[in-house]
Each structure stands twice: as C-alpha cells, then as structure tokens.
Amino acid sequence: MELLKDIRVLDLTTMVSGPVAATILADQGADVIKVEPLHGEQMRHVRSSHFGVNPMFFSCNRGKKSISLNLKSEQGKEVLWRLIETADVLIQNFRPGAIEKMGFSAEKVREKNKSLIFVSISGFGEEGPYAQKRVYDPVIQALSGAADIQGDHKTGEPHLFKLIIADKITSLTTSQAISSALYSREKTGEGQHVKISMLDSMLSFFWPEGMTGLTYDEYEVDSSKSMSAVEPIFATKDGHVTAVSIADSEWAGMCRAFGRSELIEDPRFINAIERFNHAEIRKQIVAEEIAKWTSEEILARLDAEDVPCAPILKRDELKDHPQIQTNGSIHTFNVPGYGNINQARPPAQFEQAPFDGMDLAPELGEHTASLLEELGYSKEEIDQLSEGRAVRLAE
C-alpha cells in the first residue's frame, strides 16, 4: 500500500498509544522509523518473546524500521537531529516537559524542519494537577468514566474494560489527526504542533451515548439507565448470542421469532421510548424466550425476521467464521523462524491502494547501520558510534 509513500515518520513513542498510531501510518505506506533507547522500548520486555519479538510488540510495531540511539549522548542526539531533517512527522509520548529537557522541543525541532508535523501524546494533557502523573490505560479508564460505563447498573460496582481501550482510541485519534495535518501542509506548506491527550480521546469517544446525561444541562437523563437499556448477552440451550431491537420493526420481528406476537402491541413495548422505560422487564422476557432455543435455532429465526443478531464467538473461533473468512479480516503469512503469523488486516480498504501484505516488526537496532549510512555516516564513524555506546547495532 503506497498511500503515504515518501512520508517519513519518526516514532519516539513507547507502549501502545503512539506505536499503534505509527503502525497505522506504516500500514498505509509511510516510512516509519522507530527510535529506541539502547535497551529497547518497554513494550519489548512485557511479554515472553518468540524469535526475539513478543506478539504484543509485533502487533504494535510491524512494518517499521528500528534505530537504537542513546539520546543522553551528544552523538546520539546528533543522529536524531539528522533524522529530523529528513522527516515529515515526529510522534512522542514522553511525560510533558521531558522532550524539552532532552533538547527536542517542538519549537526547536520545527526551527530545523519548518514543514514537520510534531505530535505530542500525553495522558492527561500538558497542564493541570494530573499532567505530571505516570499513566497507564486503567488510570485513564478510571478518570474518563469508562469504569462507570462498564459498571454493574444494579449494584453500582465499577468495572474496567478488559482491553487497553484508552491507548488504542488515542492511537486512532492520533493517526487521523496526523492525516489531517499532512493534508493541511499540502495546502499551506506549513507544519504544526498537534497535541492529543488520552483523557480527551476517551471522553470524545464515549460522549455520544455514554454521556447522554451530560449533553443538555436543562434536560436530566440518568446515564446509568441509558447504558443498562442496551440488550445484553443472552444464554441459549447450548451457548450465547446477542440480539438487538431498537426500531419498532425489529421489536416486532423479535416477538414473531419467539412466537409471542402479543408483545408487539403491549403498551410497555409499543415504541422505542416505552421499551427504554421498561428495559428491565423487556430484557427479562427476551432472555427467557431465547433460553428456549439452541443458538443455531434462535439465530435462524431472528435472521428470518431481519433482527440484528450474532453468535458470541470465542477468540479461537474467529478464524473459522465465514464472514471473517470472506472479508479476509485476518491476514496470515509465513516467516521462517516465526512460522505462521496472524494479524488483523487494516480495516480501511482503498480502491487505488489495495492491501498487499505486511512487514515484520523490527528487531532492536535492526536498521541502525543502514539508516546511519543513509544519513552520510561512514563505516568507521558507525563503528565509533557503536563502540562509544551512542548507538546500538543489530546483533
């Protein structure tokens, strides 16, 4: 895929939010250079590795080049300055103020490269009482209302998403913002500083349905009731399914599928507002009816009535589902040493830039030597940088 061909991205980020944003750009053809410390970024060390690269690091960093620099040394800093002169985008997610202390503030960097898109990702924003706190995904979930949204609406007990959702929502927000900044640069020739916080990204993501009670100050809505009105997972005789009826026609179809047509005209369920107001009894009835059937039987009946529904798949069932197979949603490729590798195919399919496969995640410092050569360093200079521990070469 060559949508972002000739766009060079310097990825100075760690863990998930920044690396995944840069991987999205790599999937779309950008030349992404992962700038790592001599010991490698933290994500390399959070899981046991396979062929030198653990699966989480692989998925967050595929398709990139790795250069390993000691940015505490003047020689390492000089290498980064040379890379900055060649770059279109720089992404960093150090704690606010850290990149400035290192000597690479947005102002200084953009003096060197005026067309650069400089992207700063923070946990909470760059100012305020939480700005300097260390942050991981659960902390943002707690502060953004996510734990409340996921909470048990009967007991009030909060729960976290079991995924690192805050990081990945920030990744999507960041990659989209970079695309917009690059488009703006095409029109104006000007780079700019883009600031994104994980907290703001999550609030924006949750707002449409998760924060209905906060949208109108003069119109009170119980947000917890709003979320509890969504149909949950239902048990069948042999498994679990989900089924959703929002429109009147969907509710009527669901009732017919159950053989309970009398419920269509029941005053408690006569329209969407009444079904919302009587959500608990409605869900109880639906659960009781679905429990009478096997998953295959009830899904067939619901499909016949055009009611949105699906089986609840386990993760090891995904590759065998016919819709996922038809879409080619999971890309499998074989690499000597690794064996078969499975990755989610990039979801956006571009007519003029069809998906043409994926590259590996880099080993630490795998491209240090080749990038230094590109920047004009001689073999002797590269050896000196390595011996002086300004850079790390691949083993």
Rank of each mutant, 00 (worst) to 15 (best):
E111Q: 12
A166Y: 04
E78I: 00
L214N: 11
A394D: 13
M211N: 12
I285V: 14
P311E: 11
L199F: 13
K314P: 09
I84E: 04
F118M: 02
F118L: 05
K34V: 05
N54M: 12
V391S: 01
M358S: 10
S386K: 01
K187D: 04
P362H: 02
Y130N: 13
V335T: 12
E387R: 07
Q141R: 15
L71H: 04
G123F: 02
V32H: 00
G357I: 06
Y219F: 13
D167S: 08
A177I: 07
A166M: 04
E296W: 05
M211Q: 13
D137W: 07
E296K: 14
G103R: 05
A344W: 15
D359C: 08
E111D: 08
K112H: 03
A300K: 14
F57V: 02
L385I: 06
T174M: 03
P346M: 07
S226Y: 11
K283E: 09
F206N: 07
E100P: 03
G189K: 01
M1Y: 08
L4Q: 02
A344D: 11
Y136D: 08
E380Q: 13
P55N: 02
I140C: 03
E2T: 15
F355M: 03
Y338D: 03
W293T: 02
I169Q: 07
E262G: 12
E209P: 04
G156Q: 06
Q384G: 09
V286M: 10
S329N: 06
S184I: 05
K319H: 14
R185G: 06
D320I: 12
N271M: 10
K72G: 09
